[in-house]
Simulated assay, not measured.
Amino acid sequence: MTSLTVAVPHEQLAEDVRARLDPSLDIDVVLWDGADAPPRERIDLVVPPYMRQGRMLARLGEIAPRLVQGQAIGFEGVEDRLPAGIVYANASSVHETATAELTLTLILAAQRRLDVVIRNQERATWDSIGTPGLADRRVVLLGYGGVGRAIARRLEGFEAELVPVASRARDEDGLRVRGIADLPALLPTADVLVNALPGGAGTRRLIDDAALSALPDGALLVNIGRGPTVDTDALVDHVRRGRIRVASDVFDPEPLPADHPLWSLDGAIVSPHMGGRSDAMRPRIARLVAEQAERLARGEEPVNVVIRT
């Protein structure tokens, strides 16, 4: 029997993890996506499928793994589905860069009105429009965790004023991070409001009608955190009236129904929850899984632990 068994959901990840493992350690990588019975009676480290981990979480009691390594940063609702005695780690270090890239893409696309430009291209219409741009704009960044910090680093070269906001005020990375209690006073000053908050009861509909009403006319909301953080009905109302604009990667509900007004409203850019879906994910998730396996094999504590049931 091997000293440690790792289960991953597909062969590509298995190959990538095997290529990164220390050959001096006795670690076996097997395939399991949760659809069928576990391939071993004992599996030490389980990696559920990306964005579809519910089926596997329901079967963890059959093998009682030492660690479950998720492939996403978010983990809201996971604890309620885990049996007792499970340790769960999220995928911090995997998606921050790609999510920050998409955030800047959404900001720039909206601020330079590429949504209008692309529609004009489809009609072969030459219309050199003026746009708000990003330079000299105030960006209020709601959330200053791993993703928020990655966004802040990428905003440095755009000559915009950055105001990060987190649960508590502090000085970090040479920036003055404001506390969440300051948000009502900051919203009327925001040209761009970026939501990078995690999900959960504490952030649900934090950006409600009152918050959206506090934004100045023409402001842009960019949501790359979680869909339920925003009151969707209130958002639709504000965008429909031309009060504000939105460029969002996450929604409530999700997937966004085909008949939802956000698909067709002027001033709305819809991105289908693809923040972490860049080619950078493949080597980064493999590196993290290999590191976790090696830590367990050496008797060390895993990183990124967010839940212990």
Rank of each mutant, 00 (worst) to 15 (best):
I43E: 08
L82D: 03
P49D: 12
G54V: 12
M51V: 13
E62I: 01
V46I: 15
V46S: 00
R42W: 08
P49W: 00
L45M: 08
Y50T: 11
A91G: 04
E62R: 14
I63E: 09
A91Y: 04
E76I: 03
M51F: 03
A64F: 03
V47D: 11
E62Y: 03
L60E: 10
M56V: 06
Y88G: 13
Y88P: 15
P49R: 09
M56T: 07
L60R: 13
P83H: 02
A72R: 13
S92V: 14
Q69N: 12
P48L: 04
E62Q: 15
R59T: 07
R66N: 02
V94F: 03
G77S: 10
I86K: 07
V47L: 05
I86V: 14
Q53Y: 08
E76R: 13
G77W: 01
V78L: 02
A84G: 14
P48Q: 05
E79N: 10
P65A: 04
R55Y: 00
I43H: 11
G77L: 03
R42A: 12
V94Y: 02
R81V: 03
R52G: 05
L45Q: 12
P49Y: 00
V78Y: 05
L60I: 11
A91V: 14
D44R: 15
I43W: 13
A64Q: 15
A91F: 02
G54F: 03
Y50M: 10
D44K: 11
H95N: 08
D44C: 10
R59Y: 10
A64K: 15
V87T: 14
M56W: 14
L60V: 09
A58I: 01
I86W: 03
L45W: 10
A72K: 09
L57D: 12
R81H: 06
V46R: 08
G74P: 10
I73Q: 07
S93F: 01
L67D: 02
P83I: 03
M51Q: 13
A64S: 13
Q69L: 10
Y50K: 06
L67Y: 03
G77N: 08
Y88W: 12
D44T: 12
H95Q: 13
E62K: 13
E79P: 01
V68N: 02
R55V: 11
P48V: 10
M51Y: 04
R55I: 10
L82W: 04
A64C: 12
I73H: 00
I86F: 00
D44V: 13
R55Q: 14
R66Q: 08
I43D: 06
I43Y: 05
Q53A: 15
Y50R: 12
H95E: 06
Q71N: 12
G54W: 09
V47F: 11
L45A: 05
G70Y: 02
Y50P: 02
A91W: 05
L57N: 11
E62H: 08
V47C: 12
S93A: 06
L60Q: 07
V94T: 07
A89S: 08
G61S: 07
F75Y: 14
G61D: 09
G85N: 07
N90Y: 12
R52Y: 07
D80A: 15
S92Q: 13
E79F: 00
Q69E: 07
G77R: 11
G54Q: 15
P83K: 02
